[in-house]
Design a protein around this nucleic acid. Sequence first.
DNA 1: AGACAGACCTGTGAGC
DNA 2: TGCTCACAGGTCTGTC
Length: 289
Amino acid sequence: MNSATVLPESLGYDKERPVPELPEVETTRRGIAPPLLGKKIRQLIVRERRLRWPVSSRLAKRLQQQQLLSVGRRGKYLLFQLDSGCIIWHLGMSGSMRILPRPGAPEKHDHVDLIMDDGTCLRFRDPRRFGSIHYTSKPVDEHKLLRHLGPEPLSAALTAEYLFMKSRGRKQAIKHFIMDSKTVVGLGNIYASEALFASGIHPKRQAGRVASGRYAGLVRAIHAVLTQAMEKGGTTLRDFTDSRGRPGYFRHELAVYDRKDESCRVCRRPIKHLRLGQRATYYCGGCQR
DNA sequence: AGACAGACCTGTGAGC
DNA sequence: TGCTCACAGGTCTGTC
């Protein structure tokens, strides 16, 4: 990365960045909004259409000259509210955004540039191309990608009562249940494992057989895990002046994820690993029931 | 309807 | 050293 092109508020990206979980998406939102807000879109450059879904060939034309009114977020979707529509932009598993004062030469995997009327460029990089870009001129909540989404994990809508009621009769493993975006948005594989550890719930326990009191603990754990990560994300953002590498906060904060056979920080038993629905799952057999 | 498998993609690291 | 191959991840789609 050419350091001359990096603004202080830019979001550094490199190959070792963790997958964008909710805190990373929110950090991205806060980072990119100020330099873009209120400006008009001069041009959208799509160098690689083959993202998770092909980027519409009509998109560039539809965005032209529209003013950016706000940058919001729903789950892990970033919402760019324009005069007469909204861009729904997902970072996928490897996507990242940064602000450039001028769009210099793109590097590998720099698939999309959104260029504003003053030349400011929002550059999207996504090596694995699991990201996506949609546009809608209808109320954005009604878009098919958003309309079935559950509550935001840090909002007042996520309560123990809600999870308890929603889970009744479900035989699904609790880890699946909380990773389902219809239940609650934004809980990826890593934070799901962490939140279940923090609340002492075994990841394979049937969702319908978790008592309401334990859901209260789970909600607190989800809150704590995401809030902590959000604060770290902010710190990371401010500290991202060198282009060297991963912030380093990431692994150190994790209690179980990717710690197979390492000792539990609470009871010292070895952390266990299993595959739950094709997903790596980590837990402590002593602390989680 | 719920539950689950499959699809998408590439950087990484293990094993040969 | 260089090759192959499994794996990681989010989330929609399709099938049972």
